[in-house]
Nucleic acid binder design. Structure first.
Lengths: 158, 158
DNA sequence: AGCCTTATTGAGACTGAGTCTCAATATAAA
DNA sequence: TTTATATTGAGACTCAGTCTCAATAAGGCT
C-alpha cells in the first residue's frame, strides 16, 4: 500500500513549488522525514476550498478509490503544516477547529446566520496592532481577529 | 438537597445588583426560570479570577463541603450566561474554551511561553473595525482579537 | 398558601474530536 | 545496501461537552 518516495516520484510531485523548499527546510530543522503521506495530504489541501476541517481530509482518505491515510496521520500532519506556517487554524462558533492554507494574512468576518466566512485585510489594523504590542513590550508572532455578526445577504433577506 | 427559592432567599442573594435586572429580563424573554443553581454559579463566577474553564466550576461544585451542582447544569448555565452577555468565551491555543465575565470590552495578548493573558483596549481598533464592517455591509455583534507571542517578562528572561 | 403547568435538575450513558501506543515499515544518510 | 531512526496505521483510549429521562422546582394563578 505504501509507496517508496524515490527521486523519480519526487521529480513530478505536486509540492515542487516554492512551498517545497520552505517545507523541506522546516522538516530538516525538526529532523523530520518527507513521506509520501505528507505529500498527499499537502497536495489535497492545495486542491481544497480554503477553509476545511480535519474531518474533510480524513473522509477523503478513507473513501474507496483514494489513497488511504489514517486519521492519526492526518492530525499529525496538520500539526506539522501549521508549525511550518503553511496552514493556519482558527475556531468558528466555538465548535470546530478549522484550517485554511495561508495565502496572504487576513482576518475574518463570520456570519452567524449562514456561516459564510468573509476574509479581509486592513493595513491600519496591522499597524495599530504593532503599536499596541510595542507599548506592552510584547513580541507578536501572530494574531487572529474574528468579527461575528450578520452578512449583507442575510441582512437583506428580510 | 435542592432549596426552594423563595422571596426571603432572593432578598439577600448575591446577584442583587444591576446584573440581576439584566439577567432576569433575559430569562423572561426566554421563558426561563431563575433557579438556585443558576444563582450559585453566577455567584461563583463573580468571585473567580477573570478567566476560567468550565472545569474549574465543575470541580468546585463537586468538592465535598460545597453545594453540589452537576456538570450538565454548569455547561447549560454557562451557555445561558453567554447568551445573556454576562460572560464571554474564547479559545486559547486551540485547547480549551475559556470563559471570562464581561467587564468592559477588551482584546487579548497571549504569551505562548508562560500562558499569561494580557488584556488591552484600543479605541482605534474599534473604530477601524466598524469602518471595515460598514464597507462590507456587515453588521457586527462582537469580535475577538487575540494576539499571540512572547510577553515582556519571558523576553527578558534570556 | 396551595395548585398546576412547564422548565430545570442530576446521574450517568453517550458522542466524537483528537491523542496515544506499538509493532511494522519507510526514510535518509553513509 | 545497510543501519539507525522517524513515521505509519489500527484501534484503543481520553475527556470535553451533550443528551436522556424521571424526579423535582419555579412561577403564575386563584
Amino acid at each position: 500500500m505504501r509507496l517508496s518516495l524515490n527521486k523519480a516520484v519526487m521529480g513530478n510531485c505536486i509540492i515542487n513549488d516554492n512551498k517545497t523548499a520552505i517545507f523541506n527546510a522546516f522538516l530538516k530543522t525538526k529532523w523530520l522525514k518527507l513521506t509520501w503521506e505528507l505529500e498527499k495530504i499537502l497536495q489535497k489541501i492545495m486542491e481544497m476550498d480554503e477553509h476545511f476541517l480535519p474531518e474533510d481530509l480524513i473522509q477523503y482518505f478513507e473513501q474507496a478509490g483514494n489513497e488511504r491515510i489514517s486519521r492519526a496521520t492526518v492530525y499529525r500532519t496538520l500539526k506539522l503544516l501549521e508549525e511550518a506556517s503553511i496552514i493556519n487554524s482558527f475556531h468558528i462558533n466555538d465548535d470546530f477547529k478549522k484550517y485554511e492554507r495561508i495565502k496572504a494574512h487576513h482576518d475574518h468576518m463570520i456570519c452567524n446566520e449562514c456561516g459564510k466566512i468573509i476574509e479581509f485585510y486592513d493595513e491600519r489594523l496591522e499597524r495599530i496592532q504593532k503599536e499596541i504590542c510595542d507599548e506592552y513590550g510584547f513580541k507578536a508572532d501572530s494574531h487572529i481577529m474574528n468579527i461575528t455578526g450578520k452578512c449583507i445577504d442575510c441582512r437583506n433577506k428580510r
